[in-house]
Design a protein around this nucleic acid. Structure first.
Lengths: 212, 212
DNA sequence: CACAAGCGTTATGTATACAAAAAGTGGATT
DNA sequence: AATCCACTTTTTGTATACATAACGCTTGTG
């Protein structure tokens, strides 16, 4: 693994997990010493982070980007647009059997949610598989790329909300509905199910938001 | 101006203007010598280009990304989604007078198109002002950013099509319709006008596409 | 003759030294 | 006392030397 990759992954994780708070200045020497690498690969890592929008290069040095409540609204506005379209396209172009299988798995998800840590991990992995299946089905590299760059910020926001069992169970049902609509080949239904899910998800985040 | 900025601008221009064709390998020493800088700022420029999707870092060295006809379809699929939403949001949130003024200017655009080079430049600047006004009106940094990253690829595709006077005149009318819908505060109409414009634009590109 | 393995060449990845610019600090002047 | 200017210090930007890995070529063997 390259040093720049390592630095990128470490910094990205620190930002997403809120160990590096918004407004923190990432001085090059300081960070390169902390991560045990030289400034050159660190700078490349900072470039990538800035390109993703996790940091900004304005003024002196790079600074960890702020995410406020207003940003969350903007984030979900774009997310609804992109993922709604993605779900619709998946319904048009996807393989029904793939999503039918995912739907059945998602219906059994509540069993995983009740369980301990490892089972919970399985649940997140399952949701990830649904996202991946949608990405694969739409066969539009640009749309996939746009969603991917969004997800980075979303993971960051998610950390602000408490994912209780009740919300996860409801989310699983919503995901199952999306999978079902895609399997049925119904674009408008798939888009509607996605819109519904995202609105509920946003409401949950805002309701359980803990100010930093 | 920093050397890395200079290198970025130069390479970006070379790619967009098709002086560096898809598949071209951008060797670090070769390019740094050509641009008269050292490898360090060049690498940063290549990083930025790769983040934008103009180049890919796969295998050995960075390679100029290919844009095929299939890519154009994908590109416009995403563009329709994003710009449609943007137009709708602008209709909801924008200042009517701003877009009313733009609409009136666009109606006079055919006079510019008939003229010589400088007048044509004024036309492109006018369309740019409409885009900028929409960006400002939607007040959604994430959506603006997503559209901005798309526009880079679009400029590249545009260069494949011959922008004759007839098409530009029609495009001006389509833009005027978008501005009118936004000024009227009608989101659905604004989205529809955008969809229409983009479809016609795509048809024109594909019809006049000159294989490289 | 084909294929694989080892070596050499050439590319990228990393570290460090140097240059330049910007920000903070101290002192002097009004 | 406040402000402005110059200086110091710190931080980023650039160049270059070195390390490492990948690609291709040659050579030997099946």
């Amino acid at each position: 693994m390259r040093a720049s990759d390592k630095a990128y992954a470490a910094l990205r994780d620190d930002i997403i997990e809120w160990r590096l708070l918004p407004g923190t200045v990432l001085a090059e020497v300081e960070q390169s010493e902390r991560l045990g690498i030289s400034r050159t690969p660190l700078r490349e890592a900072l470039s990538r982070l800035t390109a993703e929008g996790l940091t900004t290069a304005g003024g002196r040095g790079v600074v960890v980007t702020d995410i406020s409540l207003d940003d969350i609204d903007e984030l979900f506005e774009l997310r609804e647009t992109l993922e709604g379209k993605a779900a619709a396209l998946a319904a048009e172009r996807g393989d029904p059997e793939t999503f039918e299988r995912l739907r059945r798995e998602l219906l059994h998800a509540p069993e995983l949610i009740g369980g301990q840590e490892p089972a919970l991990h399985d649940y997140y992995e399952l949701v990830g598989r649904l996202d991946a299946a949608i990405d694969a089905a739409i066969s539009n590299a640009y749309l996939v790329q746009a969603m991917r760059s969004l997800r980075v910020h979303l993971v960051r926001v998610r950390r602000l909300a408490a994912d209780d069992a009740a919300r996860l169970t409801a989310a699983a049902a919503e995901h199952a509905a999306i999978a079902e609509a895609i399997a049925a080949g119904n674009p408008r239904l798939a888009e509607a199910a996605t819109t519904l899910h995202l609105h509920r998800s946003l409401s949950h985040v805002k309701a359980t938001h803990t100010p930093h």
